[in-house]
Simulated assay, not measured.
Amino acid sequence: MLGSAARSEAQDADPFEHGWILDAGASDLQFLSVKKSVIAETSSFATLSGLITDTGAAQIRVLMDSVDTKIDLRNVRMRFLFFETFLFPEATISAQLDAGQLRDLHTTRRKVIDLPFTLNLHGVTVERTAEVAVTLMSNDRVTVASTNPIVLALQEFNLEEGRAKLQEAANVDILPMGMVSFSFVFDRAQPGTPPDLQSVTAPVTPGSAALETQGDFDREACLGRFEILSRTGNIYFGPGSARLDDKSVPLLENLHDIVRRCPDLRIEISGHTDSIGSDASNQRLSERRAQSVRDWLAAKGIPADRLLAVGYGETRPAFSNDTEEDRRRNRRIEFAEIGG
């Protein structure tokens, strides 16, 4: 009894005693999107980590590859077309909890507070305030949950281009906002081992958290991924050049992983240009650019006889060539099964 009383007094003095560690399996982070104006879809993230230090500094880390829509190719679209996880593999939520607001949590058991937080998503950092409910489930377990959905405008996070790609891929209209809700469950850390914010900043291996079949993909999964990769627009060359820009590497690394896991397929790598310049020069440029991608994959160990580089010049535009934006999108590399 004396031990319990001492523990209660300690909690009264310091609600962050020893710090807290996120129970990822019991926690949940969801976002709701709306398509066709009336159809709401809820998705979540499967890989979370986080903590609250003994000074009340809180951080949640979200591995964006772990997006879970319950449908494999929809997950892949979200990763490559919307969130661009090959460039932005994680999102973080940071906050500083106020001990004064929570000092009596051990007696009230539940408190609703306004919590300022910082969200870093898709390379953009914003500051917001959310109403959250902090509930002490036991002396060593607490939840921090949103009381209302948090509305995020996609434009604010440079996600409008990703929304356009999703709309084209799925042939649906999607509202330019998402609604986020969460319930984070924390367990008290062991005495003498206060959690450190550095423990949730380990480097992320691209694709490591993706929810997909381990090992080789079947043909349908391969073809679906090639179609999605063809829509990314994240393979770059200098103007009039066939030399791959270094900023292409993150997507190429993911492409390599997918091609490697489709060992029974021979793959056509096709280059396409806009309509500026002569037909002959555009044809040559498209062939050289496709060959550069083929050479990159072969250098990474993909058997050369599985890869065919083809140039189509300006003959297969995906968009009109009337605007600079459409011309930019026509300058692309696509992937398909040979003979498919």
Results as ranks from 00 to 15, higher is better:
F88D: 12
P89H: 09
P89R: 06
P89A: 08
A91C: 13
T92Q: 10
T92L: 10
A95C: 13
A95V: 10
Q96F: 12
L97W: 07
D98R: 02
D98G: 01
A99L: 14
Q101D: 13
L102E: 14
D104C: 00
H106G: 04
H106V: 07
R109W: 02
R109C: 00
R109S: 02
R110M: 01
K111R: 00
V112C: 00
I113G: 09
D114T: 02
F117Y: 13
N120H: 11
N120V: 11
L121E: 09
H122D: 11
H122A: 09
G123L: 06
V126H: 05
E127F: 12
E127I: 12
T129N: 12
T129P: 14
T129R: 12
A130H: 10
E131Q: 11
E131W: 07
V132N: 03
A133S: 07
V134S: 02
T135N: 10
T135S: 11
T135M: 07
L136A: 05
D140A: 10
R141N: 10
V142W: 09
V142Q: 08
V142K: 05
V144S: 04
S146A: 10
S146N: 09
T147R: 08
T147A: 04
N148I: 00
P149D: 08
P149K: 06
I150S: 03
I150K: 03
V151L: 15
L154Q: 01
Q155P: 00
E156S: 03
F157N: 02
L159Q: 05
L159E: 06
E160D: 07
E160Y: 08
E161I: 13
E161T: 14
A164V: 03
K165L: 11
L166H: 10
L166Y: 11
L166I: 15
A169V: 15
A170K: 14
A170V: 15
A170G: 13
V172G: 05
D173A: 02
I174P: 07
P176V: 10
M177S: 04
M177T: 02
M177H: 04
M177D: 04
G178A: 06
V180H: 09
V180Y: 11
V180M: 12
V180F: 12
F182L: 02
F182T: 01
S183C: 04
S183I: 05
S183G: 03
F184S: 04
F184E: 05
V185D: 12
D187Y: 13
D187S: 14
